[in-house]
C-alpha cells in the first residue's frame, strides 16, 4: 500500500485510485510490485503540488480477511499510539 502525510496538518493519508483517503481500510492494495511502483511514482510526482509529503510504500498481509500491515510501525501509524487509545484514527479522530 501507499501512504503519505498531508502537508497542512500532517495527517496520515493512504492512496486510493489517484486520490487519498484517511483510513487504511478504505485504501488500495497493490497486487504486485509494478503497480505499487507506478502508484509511488505518481504520488512522488504529485508532491510538487504541495498538498502531500513523504510518500512511501509498505507491505500488508491478509489476516482473517482483514488487510493488516506487516510492520508494527505501520499498524501503529494506521491506528494511533497504543498508549493513548483515545487518540488518533483508532478513536475516530481525523482532521476534516
Amino acid at each position: 500500500m501507499l501512504t503519505a502525510n498531508r502537508l497542512r496538518d500532517g495527517d496520515v493519508l493512504y492512496r486510493k485510485g489517484s486520490g487519498w483517503v484517511l483510513m487504511l481500510a478504505d485504501a488500495d492494495v497493490y497486487p504486485d510490485q509494478a503497480s505499487a511502483d507506478a502508484a509511488l511514482a505518481a504520488a512522488t510526482a504529485e508532491t510538487v503540488r504541495n498538498e502531500i509529503i513523504a510518500p512511501y510504500l509498505f507491505e500488508v498481509r491478509e489476516v482473517n480477511g482483514k488487510i493488516v500491515p506487516v510492520k508494527e510501525r505501520e499498524i501503529i501509524r494506521a491506528a494511533g499510539p497504543t498508549v493513548h487509545p483515545h487518540t488518533g484514527k483508532q478513536a475516530g479522530q481525523i482532521n476534516a
Partner: peptide, 17 residues
C-alpha cells in the same frame, strides 16, 4: 523546509507534526 522547521522545533512524526 525541513531543516528550517526543525530549527524551530517542528518535526513530522508518525501521526502528525
Amino acid at each position: 523546509f525541513k531543516p528550517l522547521r526543525l530549527m524551530n522545533g517542528l518535526y513530522l512524526q508518525l501521526h502528525a507534526y
